[in-house]
């Protein structure tokens, strides 16, 4: 178990390093550079003399050979130094990290909301005996997955904020401003987990152990909650890893649509002005979230299913028990 965790951690670090490297070189080969955009020029560099431009480049270390730049950047990044923003001059990392809590609030709320709604939805579909309702409940998540979130966001702003004036349309103050964006961001998560869980429940409800539980007089709800749900939840947990990616990407859209501050807003601005250090931080941060969530998911499997923890031990365990009988 502990070796398993360590091995997974090793994989995680490898992925982070690869992300950093890929992003670094990708940004390097992009046309134009930070010196140009910092100098406030468009494409031609006419307002700055070549000498001045060279000085700015030297300031930013852009005159070094690329491998040297990369080595320096990597060493600094390991110490938590991703350089300073070419726009504001503030340290890129702290600038970014300061914005994290707001985004975390949004993504966390959306994740929670999405999982609860999705699970409830799938359970209701499995529980109801009314065929029409079941079919409706099974069909709707496909729609939820397909609709673009910004469209739902704009619609809700129109109706809830402008017409009914119930909730604020924009801004970052308090829980009230969080409701709409979190709700919208939760829709794809909810729809996807409802779809996966429904499919999985359907299979599980036909498993022999479920039939055996019914033969013990277990009621529908007991069968569903005690026997079927936990056995069906693994695919949803797997999808959770993917969901983390969606949420990071989705937050960027939501923060734009609802004019919220957060890492989304910072990322968008950094990309627009080619603020390389900040973009690098943004990508690495997204990778950290992704890798972290997936690591968590991997470690969660054995908690949910005792057979996974013993995946390697199972065969021998069975054999030993078989010999004992």
């Amino acid at each position: 178990m502990i070796t398993y965790a360590f091995r997974r951690l090793g994989h995680a670090l490898l992925v982070l390093w690869a992300t950093f490297t890929a992003t670094f070189f990708l940004l390097y080969v992009l046309p134009g550079d930070a010196a140009l955009s910092k100098a406030g020029v468009g494409g031609d560099g006419a307002t700055l003399s070549p000498a001045e431009l060279a000085r700015v480049r030297a300031d930013l270390g852009l005159d070094q050979p690329v491998v040297g730049q990369y080595a320096t950047a990597l060493l600094h990044a390991l110490r938590g130094d991703f350089g300073t923003s070419t726009q504001t001059g503030a340290p890129a990392l702290s600038m970014y990290v300061e914005a994290v809590p707001e985004t975390l609030k949004l993504a966390g709320a959306a994740l929670l909301l999405g999982l609860v709604a999705g699970t409830g939805w799938a359970l209701l579909a499995a529980w109801t005996r009314w065929r029409l309702l079941r079919q409706a409940l099974l069909a709707l998540p496909a729609v939820g997955v397909s609709i673009p979130t910004f469209w739902i966001g704009l619609l809700l702003i129109q109706v809830v904020s402008f017409r009914w004036q119930l909730l604020p349309a924009i801004g970052n103050d308090g829980v009230r401003s969080l409701v709409l964006p979190a709700l919208v961001l939760a829709v794809p998560t909810a729809a996807m987990s409802a779809q996966i869980l429904s499919r999985s429940l359907e299979a599980t409800l036909h498993a022999p152990y479920v039939e055996t539980a019914r033969a013990r007089g277990a009621s529908r709800s007991r069968v569903l909650l005690r026997h079927a749900l936990r056995n069906s939840v693994l695919p949803v947990v797997t999808a959770l890893g993917m969901t983390a990616g969606h949420l990071v990407g989705g937050s960027v859209i939501m923060e734009t649509v609802f004019s919220r501050s957060g890492v989304g807003a910072i990322t968008v601005r950094a990309v627009n002005v080619q603020d390389t250090p900040v973009v690098l931080v943004a990508v690495v941060f997204a990778a950290v979230v992704f890798v972290g969530v997936n690591l968590l998911v991997d470690l969660l499997y054995p908690v949910i299913d005792p057979r996974i923890q013993l995946r390697t031990a199972r065969r021998t365990g069975l054999l030993r028990a078989g010999v004992a009988t």
């Binding site: 498993a207 022999p208 152990y209 479920v210 039939e211 055996t212 539980a213 019914r214 033969a215 013990r216 007089g217 277990a218 009621s219 529908r220 026997h227 936990r230 056995n231 949910i304 299913d305 005792p306 057979r307």
Partner: peptide, 26 residues
């Protein structure tokens, strides 16, 4: 079904076919 659930597992017991898949693995 409600009345059946009072009989099943009480005066009426069931032994399933496949012991490998008839126990909840969790």
């Amino acid at each position: 079904e409600r009345r059946f659930n009072q009989v099943r597992g009480r005066s009426l017991g069931f032994i399933p076919q496949d012991p490998m898949s008839s126990l909840n693995p969790l």
